[in-house]
Amino acid sequence: MSLAVAGEEHEESGGRLKAIIFGGLDGILTSFAIIAGAHGANLGPVPMLALGISNVLADALSMGAGEFLSSRSYNSYVLKEREREMWELKNHPEGEIAEMVQLFVARGMSRVDAEVVIERMAKYEEFFVDIMMKEELSLPVPSEEDTLESLKDGIAMFLAFALFGMLPLACYILAGMLAPSLDVTSLFSVACVATAISLFALGAFKARFHDKRYLYAGVETVLLGGACAAVSYFVGRAVSQFAGFEQLEFVIQYEQQPTVL
């Protein structure tokens, strides 16, 4: 008799959604915060672009490497915990079995049934240790493929940060090339519009894997980005005004000093 296995449909394209969303948002906000802060501080386009491009690339590499290294460190920690659990099972099996029985009883299973189930599973040490890791410690055991997945997550984080982070800068440069007559304020406005569109698209993309509320997610992401950019702009403006005041005061005092021949 053949048994039909029901096929299950899953959304596999959202597997690296966290890295893409987090990296993309951080990239856009980082580059646009630099543009907003530089504009508020009255810096020219060249220093603004130099700071923006260098910071986006450096931060993208840092974020990608951090994602990979943190995942690898976590997997190493889990595997060390598994080795400890395996040692305890080999040297003190009664205690480990009793802990699992108590855990299953606490979750609603009768003690008799729990003892039967745990005793049967304990015959298969590798399988039983993996069950203990998940049920007792809430630490699913990583496989060899998880290391490759960690590397893919790091690459996805790097690419998302770099690509999305370059969008405001690219629009700023492109607007200046296509319309050389535009002043700095107009170029900043173009960057604002491009950033808002990018943030909305990223928020809507996130909603595809969540609650399908595309408009709400897009507007929410734009408001978050706008708040971050506003803080950067006003801080840059305040620092520029303070620095300009101090410099002006120094020049006045210097000019008032008598010249000694």
Rank of each mutant, 00 (worst) to 15 (best):
E8H: 01
E9M: 03
E11D: 08
E11Y: 13
E12F: 12
E12V: 14
G14T: 05
I20L: 10
G23K: 15
D26E: 04
L29A: 09
S31N: 12
S31W: 13
G37P: 03
A38K: 01
A38E: 01
A38M: 08
H39E: 02
G44D: 09
L49H: 01
N55I: 06
N55E: 06
A58F: 04
D59P: 03
A60R: 13
G64M: 11
S70H: 15
S73T: 15
E81W: 01
E81S: 05
E85L: 03
M86Q: 01
W87D: 01
E88A: 11
E88V: 03
L89D: 00
L89R: 02
P93F: 05
E96D: 14
E99S: 09
E99A: 09
M100P: 04
L103K: 10
V105N: 10
M109L: 15
S110L: 06
S110N: 04
V112C: 03
A114L: 15
E119H: 10
R120N: 11
R120T: 15
E125L: 11
F127H: 14
F128G: 04
D130W: 08
I131A: 12
M132C: 11
M133I: 07
K134S: 14
K134M: 10
P142I: 11
S143R: 10
E144N: 10
E144W: 06
E145Y: 09
E145A: 14
T147D: 13
L148P: 08
F158S: 08
L163I: 13
P168Q: 11
L169D: 02
G176V: 05
M177G: 04
L182Q: 14
A196L: 07
I197Y: 02
A201V: 12
L202K: 01
L202T: 05
G203H: 02
F205L: 11
A207M: 08
R208N: 12
R213Y: 03
G218Q: 01
E220Q: 15
V222N: 05
V222L: 07
G225N: 13
C228S: 05
V231Y: 14
S232E: 04
Y233C: 09
V235T: 13
R237E: 07
Q241S: 15
A243R: 12
E246S: 05
V251D: 00
Q253W: 00
L261Q: 00
L261R: 00
